[in-house]
């Protein structure tokens, strides 16, 4: 597919120059298909949304330019702040718990002192292969009062099961679903990083008399700092865009999960239920900005701390 470049007229006498031109074009040709689509499905929609977010639909005069007014009204909208409060509360608790589990499992697997390492590794990863919609649906049924697993266990034990779908419990219930879905995936990434820690470093610490725990805490975990930051950033991004799980839980707990339980649910409602495309575009940008700023601050903070420690 790249051969047409070699067949340009410059091919014959000044062979050297044609060759160099060709060599210069090659990387761009390799990049072209990806970049064209990248621009079409990422850059163009972003610009379009930016443009839309600056207009407002009016009955009298159609679309009119309103500058940043949509942004001000979104930032003034308590629905957005309600949603943000939920995802922040969710993220502050769920992300550390999930990553602690993932790290713990990865360290245990990497220690090599166990039976059935292959089985564990693959089994922990399985939930990631389950679509989050189906994962949420299974848990929703298990939580549910009608033929839920927990209610039947509690019934057999003669106690009342907690109401997993109540307003107070909902964030915990959702957090459990997300933890179930993604702990294994994060574990695989951390485990791979642990495996890449040079053997001689680990063995040196053994020879110096370090216990397995000391080796794990002082040697291995600091050496996989980058992988930890990576998993943390991806988890934070995922939390801020929480949608699938609350959307599925809305069906069985409509009173608890309204139209703006998370910012993304709100953006979806604005665009498709309320037909407020301009406001939705502004909200998407605000959310994107929050994600970018939070990830950036997090990476900056962790890299500074790592530099200070080193």
């Amino acid at each position: 597919m790249f051969d047409f470049v070699t067949a340009t007229p410059t091919q014959a006498p000044p062979r050297h120059r044609g060759h160099r031109l060709r060599r210069r074009l090659v990387p761009y040709l390799f990049l072209l298909p990806f970049m064209v689509l990248f621009v079409l499905v990422l850059i163009v929609p972003l610009l379009l949304a930016l443009d839309l977010s600056l207009y407002r639909d009016t009955l009298a005069r159609g679309q009119i330019f309103v500058g940043l007014a949509n942004y001000f009204s979104i930032l003034d909208d308590s629905s957005l702040w309600d949603g943000l409060a939920h995802v922040v509360a969710f993220g502050v608790v769920q992300v550390p718990i999930m990553l602690a589990f993932a790290l713990g499992l990865a360290v245990l697997l990497d220690s090599g002192v166990l039976w059935g390492r292959r089985l564990f590794r693959i089994a922990f990863f399985l939930p990631y292969a389950v679509p989050s919609v189906i994962g949420a649906l299974i848990w929703a049924y298990m939580y549910g009062p009608s033929f839920g697993l927990f209610s039947s266990i509690a019934h057999a034990a003669g106690v009342r099961a907690p109401d997993f779908l109540s307003g107070r419990m909902m964030l915990v219930s959702l957090g459990n679903v997300v933890t179930w879905e993604y702990t294994g995936y994060n574990m695989i990434i951390l485990y791979a990083a642990l495996q890449a820690v040079p053997r001689d470093v680990v063995e040196a610490s053994w020879i110096c008399g370090a216990t397995p725990w000391q080796t794990a805490l002082r040697i291995r975990i600091p050496l996989i700092g980058q992988a930890l930051v990576l998993t943390a950033v991806f988890s934070i991004i995922g939390t801020l865009q929480l949608f699938n799980e609350p959307e599925m839980f809305k069906a069985i707990a409509p009173d608890v999960i309204g139209d703006h339980y998370t910012p993304n649910l709100y953006a979806y409602t604005l665009a498709f239920t309320d037909q407020q495309v301009n406001a939705s575009a502004a909200l998407s940008f605000v959310l994107g900005a929050i994600v970018a700023v939070v990830s950036y601050i997090f990476m900056l903070a962790t890299s500074r701390r790592a530099a200070g420690a080193g």
């Binding site: 990248f38 499905v41 972003l46 949304a49 801020l240 993304n264 940008f285 959310l287």
Partner: peptide
């Protein structure tokens, strides 16, 4: 940088396009 863009924040603009 595109990895950072929330997938869902993009879906609605993409729908409009």
């Amino acid at each position: 940088g595109a990895v950072m863009i929330p997938q869902t924040a993009l879906a609605i603009p993409l729908f409009l396009l």
